[in-house]
Design a protein around this nucleic acid. Structure first.
Lengths: 200, 200
DNA sequence: CTCTTGCGAATGAACGGTCATTCCAAATTA
DNA sequence: TAATTTGGAATGACCGTTCATTCGCAAGAG
């Protein structure tokens, strides 16, 4: 009895936070920020409305925390099995297909970040991402390398990103909404098309 | 006096409507739907809050009406100087550059449709656009033609649209937000890159 | 072991503010 | 004057956040 109770308590403690996060993620993804009032998040998570404020300072804090985590997941996924020493093309195609596969496997995550990007948060976030102390992540470095090797058209990073990631995210949304039906072959075709847009 | 008054009345009548539309367009574009309450729209338009409801059934009606008009403007602009009998590539490049040039000239219109697309309205609208009785507009026909002539990669229309228009809209947003600086030469480069994505 | 006590976690009704929409008195027009 | 349009206060619904209260459990007392 003792141990069981302790376990339950420990779990409950962590669980509450997770339950809130999951509920908020789902509601925002499915209904947008308007359709995700704190009361509804609390109900869906099975906790009291006030309880959320024991774990998060306010709604913004909750939302930003979820976004940060989801974005980290994206990077993790793109880096899984990343052919570090392969040619640029292989590395980029890996990133593209890994991202698309992840996004259609986790539709809620995609819908959430889309909601986030198209909100007051979004602009600030993008601004910091573009101007914030010269990009040190693996993906930016890959693009820089391709530019130096004159593999890519000589365009700014922001434009190259739009050419590559823009359509990929669009087709994931269309897939999730049931407008198109992606399979592995089709994903490779589209990622290849995005590569063609970048290639000199 | 009679004529003047009549003119004034006629103008006033149309003017009020136009003022409301312009105010709503600006507020939604700049602040999103959250930042555009009816009271603020009324104030910006210089009319009473209730007056709006003499011209529009409700907020949805107002928003949809604006969207429809803005979208029509887009099509108009893309069709201006459209090289009806030119090769597919020339026609598509015309559409792309005309669209981009218009969007960065009318930032409010772009921001408005982006807000619209990322809202409950957006999904319904896109669904109807994709499934709604096989596309009869000039642009869809152009894409169909390119498919038949095996100029394009054999992909669904929705995907081809994403490959071409997705990045163009992205770069317009980045330009408007001051993240990049588009000029005519750069626009042509990017439109060309989007063409490369489509080309077999 | 039983009972009491103390305390942090959890709760949800209540608050202040904002929103879309309504409604009617006042203004304008005919 | 009669009819129509206008303005903006009033309305009611809803939201994020708060806070007085309750709850559950572990430690201490007997």
């Amino acid at each position: 009895m003792d141990k069981t109770e302790k376990c339950e308590k420990a779990e409950k403690c962590c669980d509450k936070r997770e339950l809130i996060i999951q509920a908020a993620l789902e509601l925002v993804a499915e209904q947008g920020f308007h359709g995700a009032p704190m009361a509804m998040i609390a109900e869906k998570a099975g906790v009291g409305a006030g309880t959320i404020y024991r774990y998060f300072e306010n709604k913004d804090d909750l939302i930003r925390w979820i976004y940060k985590n989801v974005e980290e997941r994206f990077v993790e996924v793109m880096m899984q099995g990343y052919p570090e020493n392969g040619p640029v093309r292989e590395r980029l195609l890996h990133i593209g297909t890994a991202l698309v596969r992840h996004l259609i496997r986790e539709p809620l995550q995609l819908r959430f970040v889309e909601q986030f990007h198209n909100s007051p948060y979004g602009v600030d976030h993008r601004r910091e991402k573009i101007f914030g102390e010269g990009r040190k992540d693996v993906i930016s470095e890959l693009f820089q390398e391709a530019l130096q090797q004159q593999i890519f058209k000589p365009l700014e990073l922001a434009i190259l990103f739009s050419l590559f990631f823009g359509p990929l995210i669009d087709i994931c949304r269309d897939h999730i909404l049931g407008f198109i039906k992606l399979d592995d072959a089709l994903i490779e075709q589209v990622v290849g098309a995005c590569w063609d847009a970048l290639r000199r």
